[in-house]
Computed example of a mutant assay.
Amino acid sequence: MARMESKNKKLGGSSEAKNALVERAGKALAILKRLYPCHGTALKHGSVFQLSVAVILSAQCTDAMVNIVARELFKKLKSPEDFAAVPQGELEKLIYSTGFYRAKAKNLRAMAKALLEKHDGTVPKTMGELVKLHGIGRKTANIILSEGYGIAEGIAVDTHVKRLSVRLGFSRGKTPERIERDLMALLPKKDWGEVNGLLIMHGRGVCTARKPKCAECVLNRICPSAFMF
């Protein structure tokens, strides 16, 4: 019985009232905001279009490597026109170090052409339009909207957000879509754009996948998974 109660508590189940869970989620976010006052995307960019390119390159690649590649890439290719015109093979060489370079090059060229043909060369400002572009899914669209336009339409869920959301008991979800819905139900819309950056920073530095540093964690008093690893 004790084990079952512990499991329910960990997952934010019926033993924890919804209002208490909302309060705990808000408290956790407030603590992380104080700990990480600068928590925007680590991807370097000078425009919303460059941000869109960077998030496509970031799939299965570290932000640090994307920034290294993008620094040289944006010296040669600066606009949708440039990306639409560059030969596939040349673009592959420029982004090779980010991995999956053939698919990424294909998506970047197709995205740039779509922007020119359907959006006057401008990155759209709605989720519906963004996810129709090659290489952009809901997670990357959320980042573009939040970081590029200051629009909160959802919460970008990556591996760090998924891991911390489950450990903190904010979601039982197995998919990014379910976890996003759970987080959106717990947190006010004005905070949605900050969740990804905050949980990424905490996930990288403290709540790591293996051997999380629970003793050092500022959330260990309100985290149902603390010291369970």
Rank of each mutant, 00 (worst) to 15 (best):
T98D: 04
S79A: 09
S225I: 01
C217A: 13
D182C: 13
A103E: 14
E180A: 12
A2M: 13
E177Q: 13
R167I: 11
I56Q: 03
D63C: 10
G12I: 12
A105I: 02
L91Y: 11
F49I: 02
H134L: 04
R102W: 12
H134G: 01
V161Q: 11
M127V: 09
D182I: 03
Q88L: 14
N67M: 04
D182V: 10
S14F: 06
A209M: 08
A84M: 01
A84E: 09
T208I: 12
V55R: 02
Y149R: 04
T175I: 10
V166S: 08
L29D: 02
F229V: 09
H202E: 06
G150I: 10
L186I: 02
L43E: 08
G148L: 03
T122Q: 14
G154C: 11
W192P: 00
K10R: 14
N196Q: 13
C217E: 06
G89I: 05
M4G: 00
P188Q: 08
I95H: 08
V86Y: 10
L43K: 05
N196H: 15
A2G: 05
E23A: 15
V22T: 07
R24Y: 13
F227G: 03
K9H: 07
I155S: 08
A64S: 08
L183C: 01
S79P: 11
S225R: 04
E23F: 00
I200C: 04
G150V: 05
A42C: 03
A25L: 05
L183F: 00
V48F: 15
L115N: 14
G137C: 09
E90H: 01
L168I: 11
A85W: 10
K18E: 14
K211P: 02
A103G: 13
P87D: 10
V66Q: 07
K213T: 04
H134P: 14
F83G: 10
T126M: 03
A105L: 06
P224G: 06
V218N: 07
M184C: 11
N107I: 02
H202Q: 14
L115V: 04
P87H: 12
Y149M: 10
C223H: 11
S165A: 14
L164T: 12
E194F: 00
R109K: 15
R163S: 06
G173S: 12
V206F: 05
R181T: 14
I222F: 09
K139R: 03
G12E: 09
R221E: 15
I136Q: 06
A152P: 14
P188I: 09
L164N: 02
F227W: 07
N107H: 15
H202N: 11
K132P: 12
S79T: 15
R34D: 13
S6P: 05
E92A: 07
Q88M: 14
R138E: 15
S15W: 04
G135D: 03
T208M: 14
N220I: 00
V218P: 11
L183V: 00
L108C: 08
K44I: 13
L108S: 04
V69C: 03
T208N: 10
I155E: 01
L11S: 05
T122M: 09
L198Q: 01
S79L: 04
G12S: 07
K104Q: 13
L11D: 14
L219T: 01
E216W: 12
E81V: 07
M111K: 12
L168G: 01
R24P: 05
P176D: 02
V69A: 07
